[in-house]
Amino acid sequence: MGWIEFIQELFTDYTSRTVILGTIVLGVVSGTLGTFAVLRKQSLLGDAISHASLPGIAIVFLLIGYKDPLLFLLGAIASGVIGTLWIRGIQQNTAIKSDTALGIILTVFFGLGIVLLTYIQRLPNANQAGLDSYLFGQAATLMMKDVIIMSVLGGISLLIVLLFWKEHKLLIFDAEYAQTLGFNTRFLDILMTSLIVVAIVLGLQTVGVVLMSAMIIAPAAAARQWTNRLSVMIIIAALFGAVSGIAGTAISTSTKNMATGPVIVLAAVFIVALSFVFAPNRGLLFRYINTLKKRKNHEHTPN
C-alpha cells in the first residue's frame, strides 16, 4: 500500500480512521504535557516512567489472562507511579545522584518487564498476541475501544491542564513564590507528575515503552523554538505531536513489518531538527545571519 492509497483509505476505511484518530489523541496529549515535562527539566524522568510501566502491563495480563486496554493502562500507571516514587526515595534518602536513580529504575523495571514478557510468551495462552507490540508500538493494533479510552483519559488530562493553567505556569516558573502566595505546591507537583504519567502511558500501545519518552520531549522541544508564549508553545507542541503521530502511522502501516514507534519518533525528531535550524529568532540559521549582519555593520562603522 502506497502513500496516496493510504490517504484515500484514511477517509473511507474504518480501521485506518481508528488508528489515525488514536495517534492524533496521542500526539496532542503528549505534546501538551511534554511541554510541562520539558520546561520542568524532567525530560528523562519520562524515559524512566515509560520503561517502568512495562512490568505493570505484564502483571495485569498474568492476572487476568486476556487483553484489556483499560486495565493495561491502569497497570502501566501503577507501575510507572511505583517507579517514580522509588526514584524520589533514592534521591531523598541516599547519596545516589538523580540521573543514576533514573537509570536504575529504568533498566531494572524494564528487565523485570522483559522477564515477565518472555515468561508470558511460553504460556500456552493464545490471547497473549499483542503484548509484544508494547515494546516498539504497533498502531495497527489500536481498536475503537482503545481510542475511546485514550480520548476520555486524554480529554480529562487536557481539561485539568486548562483548569489549573495559571497554577501550573506559576509552579513551573517559580514554585517557591507560588508557595508564598498560598498555593499548595505539593498538590500541584503531584497533579502535574500524574498528568505526565498518564500522557506517557496513553502512548505505549502506539509508540512503545522504549521510545515513548521521545514523544514527550520532541514536540515540546520543537515548539519552544517557535514562540515565547507558554500557551502558544503548548498548542504548537500538540500540533507537532499530532503531525508526527499521523506521519509515523501512515508510513509504518503502509510498510510491511514496521513498528510504529521508531517511525513516529523519527518524524518528531525531524520536526525538532527543522525547528532548531529554521525557527525565527531562536533558530540557528537566524542566529547565523544575525552574526553575519553584525560583522558587516562592524566593518562599516569606523572605529
Binding site: E167, K169, L170, L181, F183
Partner: peptide, 20 residues
C-alpha cells in the same frame, strides 16, 4: 521560561485571585 514581562508581573495577583 516562555513568557513575557507583563505575564510575570501578573503572577503577583494570583494569590488574591485564588485557585482557578
Amino acid at each position: 521560561f516562555p513568557t513575557n514581562v507583563l505575564d510575570v508581573v501578573l503572577m503577583g495577583t494570583y494569590g488574591k485571585l485564588g485557585w482557578i
